[in-house]
Design a protein around this nucleic acid. Structure first.
Lengths: 207, 207
DNA sequence: ACCTGAACACCGTTCAAGT
DNA sequence: ACCTGAACACCGTTCAAGT
């Protein structure tokens, strides 16, 4: 299948976006032959991204023990963002792309189920669904973009290189928290925001 | 200044990423002349993005009445994301790009100040700084990407077109919440997550 | 039914040449 | 000091031609 080759390519060449040319070489075929199977590059992207959703959900739910809603949700969202980072040239479009596929639908259903188990319903359930999904997709695609652009980055690069380089005199708060700010990276910052959203959801659900 | 032309171009042609060619036409000059003033495209992008940070902070703080920390922060973050959407070809790289500029530093200082006024300090203050900043940048650049890619989109497009089109039988929760899910768009979903993070910050700060 | 090859319009970037 | 023009390597996409 072509999608397999795209995924393999995205994983093995994390620095460069996948290309018809590279795809042709990987499959030992003429680059333009892809147009027999997909309408354009975007269609390939959507198919591959939907597979990433499926992979993340499968990996996160293939658990030994049944989990409570919150660790279940945390595990899935962390797995999802890790998958995006692992396949940067696909993950980088995770926010802006609707896959229209089964993988994404299964993921939506899964998140809704977790939030239902948290005690939420109706508008508030969908409210938190939107918050969690958009946060994870926005953050994941952003880190994937970084990995794609910057040499040898893996989501654990310092997040605020500007603070390290630039003169921060005249910015007393930045100066005061300089070391702490430099300790931030893409993934622990993600955990920070995720905890905050889940805290709010949990409070509202158990009320 | 070249940056002015880039911004003008980004605003007036929201569907297409800015280009040396388009920039040359706008300034009535040879496209390659830019290389006399910037090392490459990325340097132009960083300069323009830093200006967006400055513009957002200026617009958000040019207030009549002094505000409490939370409305002050909300106003700034909403302004920031709106600016990204207004200049899509620059905003789309907001997450992955470090500007190394003054505008970004002023914004960091501003957010840290709001969180200090919320009663936070030390690690927890930086924790919430990371959560808020990454959430806004990730979401903003994601919506900007959408605007750039999809014809006549403005951040208020339905967020889950897949749910509208695909068959959702076999997904009982999606089916149950279908209408609510379709009402989600990029900007109200942003507000949802932002409130959740700020709620957590407020609770922790007043404790 | 599927693949190939040539072609097209479009990128960012370099560099020697102009003024 | 700044700009021009040609050139290069690289994109996605189309289409007539092959098997």
């Amino acid at each position: 299948m072509i999608v397999d080759a795209v995924l393999e390519l995205a994983r093995d060449e994390p620095q460069s976006r996948f290309t018809f040319k590279s795809l042709g070489e990987a499959l030992d075929v003429n680059p333009t032959a892809m147009y027999r199977h997909f309408r354009n590059r975007d269609a390939i992207l959507r198919a591959a991204l939907d597979r990433l959703f499926s992979m993340a959900l499968e990996e996160a739910t293939a658990s030994d023990a049944p989990l409570d809603w919150r660790p279940r949700l945390e595990r899935y969202l962390h797995t999802l963002i890790e998958v995006f980072i692992k396949y940067p040239s696909i993950g980088c479009d995770a926010f802006a792309t609707d896959t229209f596929g089964q993988g994404e639908l299964h993921c939506i259903e899964f998140v809704l189920g977790c939030l239902r188990d948290a005690g939420l319903s109706g508008d508030r359930l969908v409210h938190y669904y939107g918050a969690l999904e958009s946060y994870t997709l926005g953050h994941g695609s952003g880190i994937a973009q970084e990995v794609l652009a910057k040499p040898s980055s893996d989501g654990h690069e310092p997040w605020l290189q500007a603070v390290a380089v630039a003169s921060v005199s005249g910015f007393p708060l930045i100066e005061e928290h300089r070391d702490r700010l430099l300790r931030l990276d893409g993934l622990n910052v993600f955990s920070a925001g995720l905890s905050a959203i889940l805290d709010s959801a949990e409070r509202e659900g158990t009320r």
